[in-house]
Amino acid sequence: MPIVDKLKEALKPGRKDSSAGDDSDLNKLLASSAKKVLLQKIEFEPASKGFSYQLDSLKTKYVILNPRGSEGAASGQRASTEPAQIKRQVSDNQCGGQSDGIPAPQKMLFPGNRLSMRWERVYRVGAGLHNLGNTCFLNSTVQCLTYTPPLANYLLSKEHSRACHQSGFCMICIMQNHIIQAFANTGNAIKPVSFIRDLKSK
């Protein structure tokens, strides 16, 4: 049975369209079927109980990065205390100070109070990346990571390489070398060979 007849049979059971079977008839059937689905009335029911209690518990788990001040002087007064409050909240969250059910980390990779969400210095746009054969998705991911300020600040400080004792493949070391090379070759394009080579070996 041709696919057209199968569609007709599925859309309008009981109808054997052997005589008047053309594409326009099938289009009408598809359109009427879609219209029937789209015009169905959807009724929404109000929730049995509110979720404000869940929102309050979630608010304690997250740090507000850009708090909005309500009125002039009051917001200006709060502005001086907010950075310290945010840093304390970040360190509390990372050290497991709040009882949110998440266990404290076994190893602290980088202390939260030293985390800088903005660029520590101004850089010119770094190097572009050559496509080494279907590496466009890899390149775009690497570029996104390269221009993420907290990660770039940490890797440009070379703190990781001083403390890294990983023998062989270390993705953070490769990323650190790439970021340093990218910002040193502004206006040029470089080949992300280290990523390709090491990923192929894995």
Rank of each mutant, 00 (worst) to 15 (best):
Q89W: 02
Q89I: 06
S91R: 09
D92H: 05
D92W: 01
N93D: 06
Q94D: 11
G96W: 00
Q98A: 04
Q98G: 07
D100P: 11
G101R: 01
G101C: 05
I102F: 07
P103A: 10
A104V: 11
P105M: 03
Q106P: 03
K107W: 02
M108N: 05
L109D: 12
F110D: 07
F110K: 04
F110T: 06
S116C: 10
S116L: 05
R118K: 08
W119H: 08
R121T: 15
V122S: 07
Y123Q: 10
V125F: 04
V125D: 11
G128C: 03
L129C: 09
N131D: 15
L132D: 09
G133D: 04
N134W: 01
C136L: 14
C136A: 15
C136I: 15
N139I: 09
N139T: 10
S140H: 04
S140V: 09
Q143D: 12
T146D: 08
Y147N: 11
P150R: 01
A152L: 07
Y154F: 13
L155V: 13
L155Q: 05
S157A: 11
K158F: 05
E159F: 03
H160T: 13
S161F: 01
S161Q: 12
R162Q: 15
A163K: 08
H165W: 01
Q166A: 08
Q166P: 04
S167N: 14
G168K: 02
F169H: 09
M171R: 06
I172E: 00
I172Y: 00
I172P: 03
I174R: 10
M175G: 12
M175L: 15
N177A: 13
N177S: 12
H178Y: 15
H178C: 15
I179V: 14
I180Y: 01
I180N: 05
I180T: 08
I180K: 03
Q181V: 11
Q181K: 13
F183Q: 03
A184L: 12
A189L: 05
I190S: 10
P192H: 11
V193D: 14
V193S: 14
